[in-house]
């Protein structure tokens, strides 16, 4: 596999292709680099993180290439950050289940948010692993080529523990 681009976002630093491009948090990065997608503010934290990572790393990719791209993401927490928030809306003494939160209680929604923004019609897949294991991630992504033929694959780790602990470590790769 050839790596076309790489982004790493943590609460303190955002690296794009080996250079620090921002020291802002997720909302700050949105304001600095994006700003034209109000739906961003409806997303949960995991989706916001994946969304801004995709936004920065996909800059310059043509619509034609994006249409046939795949998105294959991995993490440890799944959608637990929003699962916990949703759980708090269904307590016995305070039962007001929120559909706006419930839809984000699936980790693969982040792949859908990225696909919608960039009109990516290829594969979208989400896997949960015990910890960030780059060898395993590369292995799974390489094997995607055995049954599909994407123009490129947006792949990597996107995990949201809490507001002080999150990481997106995402690459664009091609065969």
């Amino acid at each position: 596999m050839i790596t076309l681009a790489h982004i790493r976002i943590t609460p303190s630093e955002t690296w794009l292709n080996g250079k620090v491009v921002s020291n802002s948090n997720i909302n700050g990065i949105y304001r600095e680099f994006i700003g034209d997608y109000p739906k961003f503010f409806k997303m949960d934290s995991l989706c916001k993180l994946g969304f801004i990572a995709a936004e920065l790393i996909l800059k310059g990719q043509t619509p034609e290439l994006k249409e046939n791209a795949s998105i294959i993401l991995f993490n440890r927490n799944g959608s637990l950050i929003t699962d916990r928030n949703y759980q708090m809306t269904i307590a016995d003494d305070h039962f007001f289940p929120s559909p706006a939160l419930f839809v984000y209680t699936l980790a693969n929604i982040v792949t859908g948010e990225i696909a919608i923004r960039h009109k990516i019609y290829g594969e979208s897949s989400f896997y949960v692993l015990p910890h960030q294991d780059d060898e395993m991630i590369n292995d799974v992504v390489n094997k995607a080529y055995l049954t599909s033929n994407p123009s490129f694959i947006l792949t990597g780790w996107v995990d949201y523990d809490d507001d002080d602990n999150y990481v997106a470590d995402i690459k664009l790769v091609t065969k």
């Binding site: 699936l106 693969n108 897949s125 989400f126 896997y127 692993l129 094997k143 055995l146």
Partner: peptide, 27 residues
């Protein structure tokens, strides 16, 4: 290391596809 496929309602077919890729690769 087991793999967990969490792709909402399509997970059951995606898990089969993941298995098929693992076997096609020879690993």
């Amino acid at each position: 290391s087991p793999l967990v496929v969490s792709n909402a309602c399509i997970s059951g077919v995606c898990a089969q596809i993941t298995a098929i890729r693992e076997l096609l690769s020879g690993k």
